[in-house]
Amino acid sequence: MRLGIDIGGTKTAAVAIGADGELSDQVRMPTGFGAEAVVATALRTVERMGQLAGLHAASFTSIGIGIPGAVDSATGRVEHAVNLGLDGLDLGRRLSDRLGIDVRVENDVKAAALGAHHLLGARAGAVDGAGRPGATSMAYLNLGTGLAAGVVLGGRLLRGGHGIAGEIGHIPIDPAGVMCGCGQRGCLETVASGLAIARTWPTDSEHPARELFDAADAGDARALEVREEFFAGVATAVRLLVLTVDVDAVVIGGGLAALGEPLVVGTRRILNRWAAESAFLASTDLATRVQVVPPGFPAAAVGAALVGEHPWLKSSS
């Protein structure tokens, strides 16, 4: 049984995957802040999952961790996970020493890409005896506070030469746009992310994106304009991913994926409009490639479980 843990800024989620590819019960708990608290959270999660599965930690076939920040997947070291209070932590080594089993660590978006890929394979019935999906190529478009992507090609996670493959949120698309937190101007993240919605649709609501969509559905002119700009930004991300790596599917995940079908419909509408104006884009069938992660599917935790296996650690470049 493979164990996957998704360590987020406020909560940690875990799931185990059996030999048949089926998911076990899930565990959720608060995430501690700071290096020692993050390690303690991971250890408590492993202990709790072991209790549910009736296993000692060392009896799991593999353990994988998905976590924000810059991750060296070869060493398990995490850097710049600001929301977790981590400036540098040898998380993989620390956990391996305590648990007596190799623990592999991956960036959370890249882990979620593997989880979404697993889901696609399961839906298509293309899962082998070890629960691994077939070679469908896929990009996972993470729409949360920011924007990033993870790409799986030929069953392998694309990391690139320096581990930053998929950081499309920091590709400038508008030289006259607003400044991005990365120091560039007009990045894709400034038009298609939770931060972008918060800037263009100021509100005291705990769910500004949902309020924006509701206001647009009610006919509010400003809301319609802001939502259309957001759809165009998401469509731009889809176009960029497909034209760069020609993936079979672009699966939208992250916090904004909770917008569900309206997000997919709006994005497809923009893509179809562009296709009507370009025979080349029409030939790529961009709109048909867009999907959204089902509500409640723990993509990052599932992907983390797969990261724990040596075959998934191999990268494309």
Rank of each mutant, 00 (worst) to 15 (best):
H118M: 12
D90M: 05
L23C: 12
G50F: 10
L86A: 11
L86H: 11
F60C: 05
I17H: 07
A14F: 11
L241V: 04
G150C: 09
A287Q: 04
G181A: 06
A58M: 06
G154V: 10
E225P: 00
H310P: 13
L240F: 07
A287M: 05
D20L: 10
G266I: 00
E189R: 00
D108I: 05
G121P: 04
G260N: 05
A13W: 02
G163P: 14
P68G: 13
L95A: 12
F297I: 09
V38T: 07
A149M: 10
P68R: 07
L158Y: 06
W201D: 09
I67M: 08
Q291A: 14
G266Y: 00
P208Y: 08
E79H: 15
A135M: 10
A301R: 06
L23S: 11
A223K: 03
L114K: 00
G129I: 09
L84W: 15
S317E: 14
G34I: 06
G254F: 01
V245H: 04
L89I: 14
A235H: 00
A42T: 09
T12I: 12
G69A: 11
S62A: 15
K314I: 15
R132F: 13
G134H: 04
Y140Q: 09
A221S: 10
I164D: 08
A113K: 01
I17C: 11
D108R: 00
S316L: 14
A130D: 14
A196K: 02
A57P: 12
V265S: 07
V27W: 08
A81Q: 13
I5S: 12
L306S: 08
P30R: 04
P133I: 08
V290L: 01
G154A: 12
A19G: 13
I7Q: 03
G219S: 04
V251F: 01
G9D: 04
Q26S: 13
G21A: 03
G303W: 12
L147W: 07
A257R: 07
V245T: 13
R210H: 13
A223P: 04
L271Y: 01
R210Y: 03
V38L: 03
P262V: 10
G131W: 02
A249I: 11
L119R: 15
R159C: 13
I17D: 06
W201Q: 07
G64Q: 06
I65Y: 00
S283Q: 02
S96T: 15
R132Q: 10
V242P: 00
I5A: 13
V292K: 04
E36H: 14
V226K: 00
I17Y: 08
T244C: 07
G233T: 02
I63P: 01
V178D: 15
W274I: 06
E47Q: 13
A130V: 01
A35L: 09
L114I: 05
E206G: 05
A221N: 01
R268Y: 06
R48M: 14
S316E: 13
H118P: 02
T75R: 07
R268I: 08
V151N: 05
N107R: 04
G186V: 01
W201M: 09
V38D: 07
G76W: 02
S59T: 13
E261S: 11
I171R: 06
V151S: 06
S62I: 07
